[in-house]
Amino acid sequence: MTAVLSRGRSDAPVRSVPGRPAPRRRPTVAPTWFLLPALVVYALVVLYPSLAGSVLAFTDRSGFDPGEWVGLANFEKLLRDDAARAALTNTVAVAVVITVVQTTLGLLLALALNSAIRARNLMRTLFFAPMMLSPIIVGLLWQYIYTPGGPLDSTLEGLGLGFLTRSWLGSDGALWAIVASIIWHHVGIVMAIYLAGLQSIPPELTEAAQVDGAGAVRRFWYVTRPLLGQSTTIVIALTLTASFKLFDQMFVMTGGGPGVSTQTLSLVMYQQAFVYGEYGYGTAIALVLTMIVAAVVFVQLSITRRGEHQV
């Protein structure tokens, strides 16, 4: 993503490879009409409806009442709405924690499965497999796993770890129980991206460091880690956009409860628009969510890009 966004910059992170020209010069220009089909479908399905929907955010449309123009009233209501504010805090906390934990775990998995251990291909497959399940399936499954006396509790007790059992979905910790299930679901894709990144590092580099007497940790920190910068950028951008929009897991597992402790902005938006029929207000929340995600992702991209350039 970074390289794509930094097109035309002379300091683009392109390391030249012998026998291959760096793609800086463009002697031929591909025809613009190649863009048209995609642009038309995308505009029809995503851009136009989203714009048309956004207009509702400035009306008090509800149920079957077309509503009237109310200016910024919905956004003012959002500022006063305790539930929405709690949801915003949760959304940000979840996005940050998932991004940090999932990225770290995915990287560790990738490092482990990039070594010559036995059955690494099978393990790569297994760690990626949950990605194939729908979020609703995963939500239902984990709701069942977290039941008091259910699969998780009985396993912990069977292992003599009974003191660890707790009210997984029934306490303020419910948010983190859900986060754990999401990380289980998605860590495979982070692993896959890092594995690909690791496999593109020329083995000569780490071997040279090894000859110089660098230990595994130092080799990782000074050789491998900087070369994974772009993988990290991609991982974080994808994880952030996905975790800000989380909906199905909370919807299935707790419906936002207990109380409002697992409410997220997507959930509040859904409830307002489709459970209460308050389309105007629901749309206003969706709009705010979009702007937050866009801002965070673009800030993230510029920061991590700078990080990569120091290499």
Binding site: T147, P148, G149, R166, S167, W168, L169, G170, G257, P258
Partner: peptide, 12 residues
């Protein structure tokens, strides 16, 4: 009641 009503879903 069961010890943990808030942690128990409807079906269990």
């Amino acid at each position: 009641t069961n010890a943990d009503p808030l942690g128990t879903p409807g079906d269990p």
